[in-house]
């Protein structure tokens, strides 16, 4: 347990010195601003595109548009940027041989997996929360309407989805010496889950619901209880996948 804690501190230092924390902060602050900004500009841009002489009937943007933009940014680019950053976390150390010294000094291999998972997940939460808070601030300033009453219910599922998505990246990273395996594994899993979602009946159980239904949760047209099965499946698969990662590293030649 102590070893895991020491390795967590090493991981945090690494993220800081490798500029990963900095990049995540900058990128997700940008995303936080972009949501409300795009919502606000879209009518103007459309107006310019159709020519300024014409006056077309455009509904005024609402807080829903801002949040829609936020979740689009998060689930289409944001989480992939995070996954690219985490992708090499184990493979890189195995390829370089940096773990040899520490393992012979008594660092258990499961501690490596646990520490890396925890630090990656902390960064996931940091990124999502930061963008969320900024987006929230601007949205309530520019769109003080009551169309999105349940903003927190929309955000929690994204954090829970991170549990699984980060675990998959870590597993991918523990399987190969290639730095891109973690990223690839996550992308493949995401695609598979999206395809499964075409069968509407599985929707409640598919973890992908945690990143597709957010806007309905915010509006209140869908209750969190509807996707509860997906939440449980996400948490259980996370534990299985972390266990597999620990096994994978256990028999890895360092």
């Amino acid at each position: 347990m102590k070893a895991t804690w020491f390795f967590i501190r090493k991981e945090l230092l690494e993220s800081w010195r490798n500029y990963h924390l900095l990049i995540i902060t900058v990128v997700f602050v940008i995303f936080g601003i972009e949501g409300p900004l795009m919502a606000k500009l879209t009518p103007d841009i459309l107006k310019m595109a159709t020519g300024s002489g014409l006056t077309i009937k455009m509904p005024d943007p609402t807080s829903i548009d801002a949040w829609q933009q936020y979740y689009k940014n998060m689930t289409q680019i944001g989480i992939y940027i995070l996954v690219v950053i985490f992708s090499g976390t184990i493979s890189n150390e195995v390829a370089q041989g940096t773990l040899v010294n520490l393992v012979t000094k008594g660092l258990p291999r499961y501690s490596v997996v646990m520490a890396k998972y925890i630090v990656a997940y902390i960064q996931w939460c940091l990124a999502i929360m930061m963008a969320f808070l900024i987006s929230w601030g601007y949205t309530s300033y520019y769109f003080p309407d009551n169309r999105s009453p349940h903003i927190w219910s929309g955000m929690w599922p994204l954090l829970i989805f991170g549990l699984l998505f980060v675990a998959i990246t870590i597993l991918g990273s523990s399987l190969s010496k290639s730095n891109y395996m973690g990223f690839l594994t996550s992308v493949v899993v995401f695609i598979v889950l999206t395809l499964l979602n075409l069968f509407k009946s599985t929707g409640r159980y598919n973890p992908i619901a945690l990143v597709t239904d957010n806007i309905y949760l915010i509006k209140g047209t869908e209750q969190i209880s509807h996707i509860m099965p997906a939440i449980w499946i996400t948490i259980i698969s996370t534990m299985v996948i972390i266990y597999l990662s620990v096994l994978s590293l256990k028999y890895k030649k360092l």
């Binding site: 102590k2 690494e14 010195r17 041989g97 010294n101």
Partner: peptide, 26 residues
């Protein structure tokens, strides 16, 4: 143990690296 080609974390200085080693050995 001294491996034939010892590999370290390049972003650390020697004191930081040895601190990590020392913590792990208790």
């Amino acid at each position: 143990y001294l491996p034939d080609v010892p590999e370290y974390y390049g972003y650390m200085n020697p004191t930081e690296y040895l601190t990590l080693c020392g913590q792990l050995t208790g």
